[in-house]
């Protein structure tokens, strides 16, 4: 196989032709096919900056206010059922980002704050990732993008760290569930929004998503890219 990296300059765009691959016997069509479609982006309003850069169809995750009894749970189920019904896409990005996450010590976090910081994102992530995987076409890729504090900066971010770890494992579950369709599921984690630089790293985020959405890694799934090199 000969590979000519003629378009690597466009590596920060999801619509890039990832590599110009010279045809050769035995090369899977899935690898030769360039990423020519914009991804379907399933995200909350807080992720609108990411959505804008990725382009493509957008499916907004509703802003649901769960109480401790999860009274609004049926509304999430309805949204999930409606979302699953949409057309499939070769690339799907899921970004369930809460608005303005702030660190809080456990001792200062009452139950309603806990539900808002941990249980609401958890429920929405579970629904959105499940729906996103269903919307992913055979042979396609799903990339989730989640806030995650750097491990040494995790104090005060208990709820967010719990959600990030849960999303990691949800992704692994979905990678196995949809493996028979050759759907690959990846995760990008970033401390940027938690570290107070929500806009300064969008370029890096988009680049990481583009990398994982490309067709170059057909044997790679359940990969986690943590953007530990983001500027502070």
């Amino acid at each position: 196989m000969r590979v000519r990296c003629s378009e690597l300059a466009a590596l920060d765009a999801v619509r890039l032709r990832v590599l110009t691959v010279m045809p050769s016997a035995g090369l899977d069509e899935a690898i030769r096919r360039p990423m020519s479609e914009s991804p379907l982006v399933i995200g909350t309003r807080a992720a609108s900056g990411l959505v804008a850069q990725l382009g493509g169809e957008t499916c907004e995750v509703p802003a649901v206010a769960l109480d401790s009894a999860w009274s609004a749970g049926p509304a999430i189920e309805e949204w999930r059922a409606a979302t699953i019904e949409g057309p499939r896409a070769s690339g799907v990005v899921v970004a369930v980002w809460p608005e303005s996450p702030r660190p809080v010590a456990l001792a200062d976090q009452d139950l309603s704050q806990w539900v808002s910081a941990m249980e609401v994102p958890f429920a929405l992530w579970f629904a959105a990732l499940g729906a996103g995987a269903e919307r992913c076409a055979d042979g396609g890729q799903l990339v989730a993008v989640v806030d995650r504090a750097d491990p040494k900066d995790a104090a005060g971010w208990g709820a967010e760290t719990a959600v990030a770890d849960a999303v990691t494992v949800m992704s692994r579950s979905l990678a196995e569930i949809h493996r028979h369709r050759s759907v690959r599921v990846h995760l990008v984690t970033s401390p940027a929004r938690l570290a107070g630089s929500p806009n300064g790293t969008m370029h890096e985020l988009v680049g990481a998503v583009a990398l994982l959405l490309s067709n170059r890694g057909r044997a790679i799934t359940s990969t986690v890219l943590h953007l530990s090199g983001v500027p502070r």
Binding site: M118, F122, F126, G158, T161, A162, V163, A164, D165, A166, V167, T168, V169, M170, S173
Partner: peptide, 8 residues
């Protein structure tokens, strides 16, 4: 998923 969350 919840067992991952408690590790976090």
């Amino acid at each position: 998923a919840v067992k991952a969350a408690v590790r976090g």
